[in-house]
Every structure is written in structure tokens, then in C-alpha cells.
């Protein structure tokens, strides 16, 4: 297994280098970013001076090599807008996105799996139809619309939950301030619920359908009949035998979703004023803050590669027929 892990890690290096080259070229294809960092009334000389200060006057290969050299040493340069190390800016925003993603994934699993199982067990009934209709509704509903509706009805109308904002838990936890971290949990829960539900809604819908079809497939297989013949309770048959086998595609999907959510919750973070990474990167792209975008790309690439590796390892654990060679 360790050989497999080592090989995957080596592959990851190539993936990360490839991703940085592609993103670097793509970002520079957008033209000279200097114009966004000078005043409207800057003269040609001032623009040239600023270009030199930002380092965009050097040839592109030289700029990339300088970035790559920094990357090896863990230095991804300074954000052009924040004027501080890009990694520090990312580190400040990462915990908020991680909190949102973790809660969204938990909600997605906790809600979608029982719904999927229930739909499979009640196949063809009104319950199945209802769950699947809801799932279709959830998959076709844009997250920005759902978010705004939640704000209007739950936040503004009923006043049950805060409209927007964030109370940190992970950040103080990582800083070793356990008292603050745990003390913040009740308030944080109220703030995270609407954005996490908005993020999770699509996953809940998709995963409920996935669990249902996966369960139906497994429940129809031969090994289920002997389980029942042994006199096992239905609950034992469903959870102990069927669900364990039906998990495989769900685990794959959840692993990938986790990666996507980390980088792709821009809309939800914007609507709920959540100070996370997605919004940061979106703004950085708009502001042509190339070092910050590059650093984020590296972080995302590493996260994806790591998550994929973890999914593969879990896969092997769940299905011993899969060998990591």
C-alpha cells in the first residue's frame, strides 16, 4: 500500500506543476494586470513604474520560474491587493470555508442517506415518489435563489436565524483558544445553518438518488437473500449488508464533492457574507491578483489530490476486492 501512496504522491507533484503552469498562462493571457493597480489618471511613466514594482515587467518564463522557486520553499509571493503573503491570506480564509464545507457535507450525508434508503425500501410508493420529486427539485434549483429565499423567509421574515455573517470556531481552535472555540459553537451553529443547507441542498438531492439506485441494485443481488434466510432482522440486512455495499459510489461522490465545495462555494459565500476562500479567490480573479490566485490554485490542487487519495484508500477499505497495487 505504501508503494501505491508514494506513487500517487509523485503523480500529485506532476499534477500540481501542470495546474500551476496552466493557471499561470491563463491568468497572464488576460492582459497586463498593472492597469488595475494604478490610478485612473496615472501617466505612462507611472504605469511603467508600477509594472516594475509589481514585477510584471519581466519575461513570463522568468516570472514563472521565480514563482516555482518560491513554491519549493513554501513562499507563494505577496498578494497584490492585501500586500501580505498570499498563503497567509488564504490561511485566514480557509477555516471559514472548511467549517461551511464540513457542516454541509454532514448535512448532506445525514439527510440524503436515510432519504435514499427510505426511497429504495418504499420503491414505487408515494414516499418514493415524494422523495425523488424533492430530489429533482433540489437538483434544479439554483443555489443563489435558494439562499436568497432562505434569507427573506427564515432570516428576515421569521427572524429565526441570522441573515448573514460568520462566527468562527476552527480559527480559534487552530490558534489553541479552545475556550473561545467551544464558546462560539452555539452562535456559530445559527450562522452556519442557512449557508450550509444551501450548499448541501444539491448534494442531498443528488446523493439521495444515488443511494436509492445503489441500494436497489444491492438489494436485488443474490447475497441479500441468504442474509434474510438466516433470519436477520430487516434493519440488519439493510444497514449491515446492503448499505455497506451501496456506500462505494456514495463515498466517491462525497469525496469529490468535498473538494468541489472547498473551492466552489463562491455564490453561497457571497450571498451569506461568509468570509471564505471561494469569495476570496473570486475577488482575486476579478482584481487580477495573480499571486493570490496562483497560491489558491496550489492549495486547491493539493486538496483535491489529497482527497482523491483518501477516497481511494477508503474505497479499498470498504471493498477488499479492490487492491492498491
Amino acid at each position: 500500500m505504501w508503494t501505491y501512496v508514494a506513487r500517487r504522491l509523485l503523480q500529485s507533484v506532476f499534477v500540481i506543476v501542470g495546474v500551476t503552469v496552466i493557471s499561470f498562462v491563463a491568468l497572464h493571457m488576460g492582459g497586463d494586470p498593472t492597469y488595475l493597480f494604478v490610478s485612473e489618471r496615472a501617466t505612462a511613466e507611472e504605469i511603467a513604474e508600477t509594472r516594475a514594482k509589481l514585477g510584471f515587467d519581466r519575461p513570463l518564463p522568468e516570472q514563472y520560474l521565480s514563482f516555482a522557486a518560491g513554491l519549493v520553499q513554501g513562499d507563494l509571493g505577496n498578494s497584490l491587493t492585501y500586500k501580505t503573503p498570499a498563503l497567509d491570506v488564504i490561511a485566514l480564509h480557509f477555516p471559514a470555508t472548511l467549517e461551511l464545507t464540513i457542516v454541509a457535507i454532514i448535512l448532506a450525508i445525514v439527510i440524503s442517506v436515510p432519504l435514499g434508503i427510505l426511497a429504495a425500501l418504499k420503491r414505487g410508493t408515494a414516499i418514493d415518489g415524494g422523495i425523488m420529486t424533492l430530489a429533482m427539485f433540489g437538483q434544479s434549483m439554483p443555489s443563489f435563489w435558494l439562499g436568497i429565499m432562505m434569507i427573506l423567509f427564515i432570516g428576515l421574515g421569521l427572524g429565526w436565524l441570522p441573515i448573514s455573517g460568520h462566527v468562527p470556531v476552527l480559527e480559534p481552535l487552530l490558534a489553541g483558544d479552545f475556550g473561545k472555540a467551544f464558546g462560539n459553537i452555539p452562535a456559530a451553529a445559527t450562522y452556519v445553518l442557512m449557508p450550509a443547507l444551501t450548499v448541501a441542498f444539491f448534494s442531498i438531492s443528488r446523493n439521495a438518488r444515488l443511494v436509492r439506485s445503489s441500494m436497489l441494485e444491492v438489494l436485488g443481488q443474490d447475497f441479500i437473500r441468504p442474509a434474510r434466510a438466516q433470519g436477520l432482522a430487516e434493519r440488519e440486512v439493510v444497514v449491515g449488508h446492503a448499505l455497506r455495499n451501496a456506500w462505494l459510489p456514495v463515498v466517491t461522490m462525497i469525496g469529490l464533492e468535498f473538494g468541489f465545495m472547498l473551492s466552489g462555494v463562491v455564490v453561497v459565500e457571497t450571498i451569506f457574507s461568509w468570509p471564505g476562500l471561494g469569495r476570496l479567490v473570486f475577488n482575486a480573479i476579478n482584481q487580477r491578483d495573480i499571486p493570490l490566485v496562483q497560491a489558491a490554485v496550489v492549495v486547491f490542487a493539493v486538496t483535491f489530490v489529497t482527497l482523491n487519495l483518501i477516497v481511494d484508500l477508503i474505497y479499498a477499505r470498504l471493498d477488499p476486492r479492490i487492491r492498491l497495487t
Binding site: 436568497i148 434569507i151 448573514s164 457571497t270 450571498i271 457574507s273 468570509p275 469569495r279
Partner: peptide
Amino acid sequence: WRVIPEASTRTAELLAGN
């Protein structure tokens, strides 16, 4: 100075008195 990027969310916060 609260950062609320989405215009409709800013409006909702204003109407909620926050």
C-alpha cells in the same frame, strides 16, 4: 464596517435592523 457583498443581503440586513 461589515462586508456584505450581495446587494439583496445588505438590504435584508438593513430591513432587519442589523
